[in-house]
Structure formats: structure tokens, C-alpha cells
Design a binder for these strands. Structure first.
Lengths: 196, 196
DNA sequence: TCCGGCATGTAAGGTGTTACATGATTGC
DNA sequence: GCAATCATGTAACACCTTACATGCCGGA
């Protein structure tokens, strides 16, 4: 008696930090320490970098066979464990990067979307980036409209600082919206350069 | 033998959601249900609205005597528990709103800062808002410089999409920076209007 | 010899999420 | 009688944070 509710293997959900690590490891095999340094020193600093987050996350990725760690017994220094991505890791990364954008992802802040976009070109190529940007722009547009409507309806009843805080959010969304068009244009120029 | 390390009463740290609730309750005594609706229906939707977050948070605020709940035995509907802010709640709110901005608060996203600003005028008045905006602008400025330098140093080695993702962050910060000046100007106009 | 940088990890605790449970009232 | 809305809550779990623990190496 086959159970049709389980026809696909249940994949344990991967948190954003897991995907960030996976994407970085895909770019270049790395140890936990390497990855921590990337978070601490580069503009990816909005991610944790704390050992209590990264090492357990790496262990979970390894337990799910998305990466494999190889402990180097090099001379000098302490042994370091270098992780590299596996086939199923690569598949999971592609699936994450290729997901269509959902409406509420924008409201919760665009962090995850930007992380996906940053990794996207290497893994899925420029045309996927272009699709993503169009998708992003299309999702952003109605949300900006909603915010404008809310502001118009309520601003008279709010203290000035509350109104300004809302306007700040609106400006940020508009800024991101404009960015999508700038990025699209940049890709067009890039394409023309290659074909020209 | 007095223990000098405990000269101030240890205040349990309040998470952002707690402050959001405290600020809202300060504006108007509310029940958990009221507060959930605010998160769900207004532009404060980036905050949870899930009962599993809000009710425990309210209980913690009450346990810390920052709010007191009063269960109304009204006719009709189920009993609802309306919270109102206490004196020490008011003090805690003021302390939070008046904190100077720390450098890393900007890197972790400006959500909390904007929440503080939104509540600020009612509780601390316009002049505190002006100070806050100047402080914010001053903290933002060097961070934007850092990001620009990082981008200039690394953009040639990155895929186009990664560079664009970074530029998106930079544009957001610049947008917020410009907003601080717009907001400052708005306060100046507001002041002139009142004194004129 | 001891400090600082490399490198990995654990323990405790807090916060939030999803999903579920409960109970009363209004309207059909 | 049943569904929807009002209203509050719990339980299980996942995740991240801070703080600490460990161990090896090179240089002053």
C-alpha cells in the first residue's frame, strides 16, 4: 500500500544562512573559518559570522549531503575542515535561486532576494538574472502602490515622525524599484557588448 | 557586605517586538487582539502578528510591570484583556527612544531605528527627533563611504549580478541618507510654521 | 613563557514560527 | 445548528546569540 502523500522525498528546509553558506562553498571550497571571515570582513556582514551559528549550519548541510567536509591534515596550524558542494547541494542551490518571487518576500525585506541575486549569475546565468529582475520589478510595483495609498489615507492622523518613518520605507521601495530598471539596463548593455 | 556589581536593578532586556508593543500601548491602551490587527493591517506588517509571539511578549511585559492588563467583563463577546502602560513602562520606553545610535545598528538594517523614530515625536517631542536625524545622518555617512570603497576595490572580481546586488545596498543607504536631510528640512519647516 | 592568531566547536538561553486548542457570540 | 468572527492561549520546534572551551602554532 504505497503512500501517495510521500511520493517526493521530504527535504528538510534550509534556512537563509544555510543557503548563504552553500552559495559561498559553491563558489570556492571553504572551511568554517574562511566563511566566518567572509561574513565578518566583506559587505555580507549582515550575516552572523558567529561560530555558534556557522558550525552547526555546516554540520546540518553535511548531514543532508549538500556538502562534504574534508579534514586536511596539513603541516602547520590546526587541522581545518574544507567543505565542497555535492551534486544534490548544487541541485538545492539551483532550486532556491530559481524560485519565483512571492509577494510577501518583499514585505519582509529584500535581503534574501538580494542574496539570491548575488549568486544567481554564476549558477543560472545572465538570462535567469534578467527574468528575476523583471519578476522583482513586477512584484514591487503594486506593493509601492499599497504603501502610497496607506500613507495618503492616514498621514493626517499621524505624528510627523511616524509619517516620515513611513515615507522612508516608501522611498526605499522606490529606490529598489529604480534599481531593478538600472540593473536590467546594465544587463542589456552587457549583452550588446558581448554580441556586438 | 554590599555587592557593588549590582548597584542598579538588573532590567531584563526587552526585544524589539516588546518595544513595538509598548509604544503602541502607550499611544492607546489595547488588547492583544487589537495589537495583532495593527501588525496585520497597517504598514507595520513587518512585525509578526502571530499569537505565539504577541501573547507571550505581552505576558513578559506585564511580568516586568511595564504594562498592566485589565480583563474587561463586558457584555458580549469573550473577555478581552486591555493593557495600558505603567510608569516604569513609560520610563523604559523613553530610555529606548533616547538611546544614541550605535554604528552597527545601521549595518543590521534600519528597522529598529525607524520604529524608534516613528514613536519618538509623541514621547520625546520634535527636538529629540531632530537630534536623532542628525545622529542618524552622521552614522550613515562613513558607512556609505566604506561600502563605496569596498565596491571600488572588488567590483572587477565579481560577477555582474553580485556587483549589482552590492550597488543595491549602497543605493538603499544613500536613499536613507537623503531621507534624513529631507526629514530634517521637514522639521525645520514645521518649526517655522509654528513660530511664524 | 605567555600572548595572539588560527580553527573548531559546545552550552545555555532567548525569540520567533507554525500549528493547534479553546471558548463565546452573532448571523444565517 | 453551523459557520464566521472575536479573543486568548499553548506546545513543539527551529534558529540565532553570547559566552565559553579547546588546542595548535609562532613570535617577543
Amino acid at each position: 500500500m504505497p503512500d501517495s502523500t510521500k511520493r517526493t522525498k521530504k527535504r528538510a528546509p534550509i534556512p537563509i544562512l544555510g543557503y548563504a553558506l552553500l552559495g559561498l562553498i559553491d563558489q570556492k571550497p571553504s572551511s568554517g573559518y574562511d566563511l566566518r571571515k567572509i561574513f565578518a570582513e566583506t559587505a555580507m556582514g549582515n550575516y552572523s559570522s558567529s561560530p555558534g551559528a556557522i558550525y552547526p549550519a555546516l554540520q546540518k548541510l553535511e548531514a543532508g549531503r549538500l556538502v562534504i567536509g574534508n579534514t586536511e591534515e596539513t603541516a602547520g596550524l590546526r587541522r581545518r575542515c574544507v567543505y565542497r558542494i555535492t551534486q544534490s547541494g548544487s541541485v538545492a542551490l539551483k532550486r532556491w535561486l530559481g524560485r519565483p518571487i512571492e509577494g510577501d518576500e518583499v514585505k519582509r525585506g529584500a535581503e534574501e532576494l538580494m542574496l539570491r541575486f548575488a549568486f544567481m549569475e554564476r549558477v543560472l546565468g545572465p538570462s535567469a538574472c534578467v527574468s528575476f529582475l523583471r519578476n522583482f520589478s513586477a512584484v514591487l510595483s503594486p506593493y509601492i502602490g499599497e504603501l502610497e495609498a496607506f500613507l495618503a489615507a492616514n498621514q493626517d492622523r499621524m505624528p510627523l515622525s511616524a509619517r516620515l518613518a513611513l515615507e522612508s520605507g516608501l522611498r526605499s521601495y522606490r529606490c529598489t524599484f529604480e534599481w531593478t530598471h538600472y540593473a536590467l539596463q546594465t544587463y542589456k548593455d552587457f549583452q550588446r557588448e558581448r554580441h556586438g
